[in-house]
């Protein structure tokens, strides 16, 4: 039976994503997502099975698979491993052809990629090894404020940013708790948190020519408020990609289609 499907699996530090595409016309037929948990291999197999079930596709109809993300080496028998930088670039270009920059905020790192006209990587920067300015940082801060991520983002839109100087996830939490104790309004603290993330991202963005169309990917890009907040602070319009969390998986599937 001809292999009619290709798949990309993005095993991230927080979530594992899968995209199944039609091998020839490259339509996105199915996507799935699950928490990575402690077993990246199992998470990868789960999302692949879920995606195939959505397409009613049988395993035999699956052709090439490319695995990306920090767990890219967890499924060696299944498909080739490629980095999330290369896959995000390809996926973001496919999902938003006019984009020249990709801002991806993942669970444990954030990165900015300069795209060439065909979606190739021309340059990239990643944040340091700490959790500063990552999805993990944002979740921790929301927890410290006793809010969900959605509540924190909505509150931040109305607040006046409180200056938070610390970008270390651990120190920032202490600083936040100190501010709460001094009676700062939650909305102002929420605004301050996004301003501090933006400050960090701005340092990364400084490497690239200003004013380029920038697409926004990763879990935080699912929330329109966050895109708006970061655009405001970065003075750089961010357009969330369609399927923002799946950009890496889509890119991986596209590489699978041409492999």
């Amino acid at each position: 039976m001809a292999a009619g499907l290709v798949a990309g699996i993005d095993i991230g530090s927080t979530a594992t994503k899968c995209a199944v595409l039609h091998a020839r016309d490259l339509t996105i037929l199915a996507t799935a997502i699950t928490p990575t948990g402690w077993n990246p291999r199992e998470a990868g197999e789960t999302v692949l099975a879920q995606s195939l079930a959505q397409t009613n596709g049988r395993r035999e109809s699956l052709g090439a698979v490319v695995v990306t993300g920090y767990g890219r080496k967890a499924l060696p028998g299944l498909g080739k491993a490629m980095t999330e930088i290369t896959c995000h670039a390809r996926g973001a270009h496919f999902l938003q052809a006019q984009a020249r920059l990709v801002l991806d905020i993942g669970g444990q790192d954030s990165k900015i990629i300069q795209l060439g006209p065909d979606g190739q990587v021309l340059d990239f920067v990643m944040n340091d090894k700490c959790a500063a300015g990552t999805g993990r940082f944002v979740s921790n801060m929301a927890a410290a404020l006793g809010m969900t991520l959605e509540e924190m983002a909505a509150a931040a839109l109305t607040g006046t940013p409180v200056q938070l100087s610390s970008m270390c996830a651990v120190f920032a939490e202490s600083e936040l708790i100190g501010s709460i104790a001094r009676g700062a309004a939650p909305a102002d603290l929420a605004a301050g948190i996004f301003q501090s993330i933006a400050r960090r991202l701005k340092a990364l963005l400084g490497r690239f020519a200003p004013g380029q169309p920038c697409t926004f990917t990763g879990g935080l890009a699912c929330n329109a408020h966050i895109a708006e907040l970061l655009s405001r602070h970065l003075e750089q319009p961010l357009t969330p990609a369609p399927w923002p969390q799946h950009a890496g998986a889509v890119g991986a599937a596209l590489f699978a289609a041409t492999s």
């Binding site: 490629m82 980095t83 290369t86 790192d109 795209l115 065909d118 190739q120 990587v121 021309l122 590489f255």
Partner: peptide, 20 residues
Amino acid sequence: DAEQLRVRIEAFLEMQTVAG
């Protein structure tokens, strides 16, 4: 930071070998 370095290094090498 070995895994973070590995991503940077592999992505850098992919830039030389993978067409967009």
